[in-house]
Simulated scan of single mutants.
Amino acid sequence: MAEKALPRLTRLLGIMTYVQDEGEAPFVDLAEKFDVSVETIRKDINALWASGLPGYAGGDLIDFDSYLFDQDVASIIDSQGVTQVRLSTREGVALVGALASMIASGAAPAVASSARDKIGEMLGADDPVVVQPIADVDHNITASLQDAVTRGRVIDVEYVDAADHRTSRTIEPHRLVAIDGVAYVECFCRRAQDYRTLRIGRIVGVQVRNEEVIAPPADSSGFTLVSQFEATVVAARGSRWVLEDLPGVKIEDVGDDVRATFDVVDVDWVADRLLAIAPYLRAVEPKSVRAALAQHANAVLATVAG
């Protein structure tokens, strides 16, 4: 199976950093460190040699020592700044916040906590940013999913949807993502014969197969979240600004109120949004959205009471 772009890009950047730190690195050492063949390292160095800044003239390209290259040794003459990353304070704070959100969601790899803390230290923060998890995620399931994504393996999962229907699915996982602090696995579902984004918190069982993924990731950046059902909310006109933020919403005036109709992908996500305008709600349909809204409201009240 052809190598995916992301693992190779990660290795190329790793080679640049390693060689920059070491000064000189024999291909055999690089091959052992990155768990590939010497021939693969040679191809990687050639690819890097043809890379650089826009313009791609001689002075814009990454440059290696050609004499040492012929001896199967990598030595960088000009890195074009590839190994130097500079963040503004605003970019650093945003990155720390994003990492904290991913960690809380359960979708982040193990190194995310270390990266968050190191960036926090660079910014001079006394304490790391901590975001409380929005929902419980079984970290054993997350680890199995991440392992399957890394090794390109098919998985059998037990999944409970927003209507509490339990199904068995065979999926080809492509990546774990965090959307609004909630962890999902983007995959090709063999049961649906289409791409799906499954909420990890709703996966209750995982069995990794010794079978390689066949379906490629979707061409688009991320997959379209599949609607579970349609919901309708009637609320006071002053709350329109929150309703307008719902994906694909259609809003019409009804006297002094507004009626919003929209597709529900994740009922908990919708409940979180509606909770912000709870005093202005007149009607919420269907029952599953009302139930989720009540559950979130009770959780908030319990926290305040505690």
Rank of each mutant, 00 (worst) to 15 (best):
T17R: 15
E24A: 11
A302W: 06
Q20M: 10
C187H: 04
A94K: 09
S144Y: 09
V300A: 13
Y18A: 13
G55F: 06
V85M: 08
V258A: 03
T83R: 05
E230R: 13
G222C: 05
E22C: 13
S79C: 06
R209Q: 13
L68T: 00
A178M: 06
A104F: 05
T17G: 07
I41F: 02
A294W: 03
F27I: 06
V206N: 06
V258Q: 05
A292F: 03
I200G: 01
E3F: 10
S227R: 13
S101Q: 10
G59I: 06
G238R: 14
F27D: 00
G97P: 03
N210A: 14
E32Y: 08
A47V: 12
T170H: 09
E244A: 11
L48H: 02
G52P: 01
V154H: 05
L87R: 02
L301D: 07
P173L: 06
S75I: 02
S79R: 04
V267E: 03
F188W: 12
F262N: 04
D35S: 15
T303Y: 10
N140R: 15
M122V: 09
D164M: 11
L30P: 00
V233H: 00
A110E: 11
G106A: 08
T150F: 14
G55S: 08
D60W: 01
L61D: 00
V249W: 00
A98M: 13
I200K: 03
I76V: 08
E252Y: 10
A162D: 14
S220V: 11
G55V: 04
Y184N: 03
E244D: 14
A294G: 09
D180N: 15
S221C: 12
R116N: 02
R166W: 07
A125T: 08
Y159F: 12
S144D: 15
T40S: 11
V185L: 05
L281C: 02
E121D: 14
L61A: 01
S288T: 11
R196I: 01
S168C: 13
W241V: 08
H165A: 15
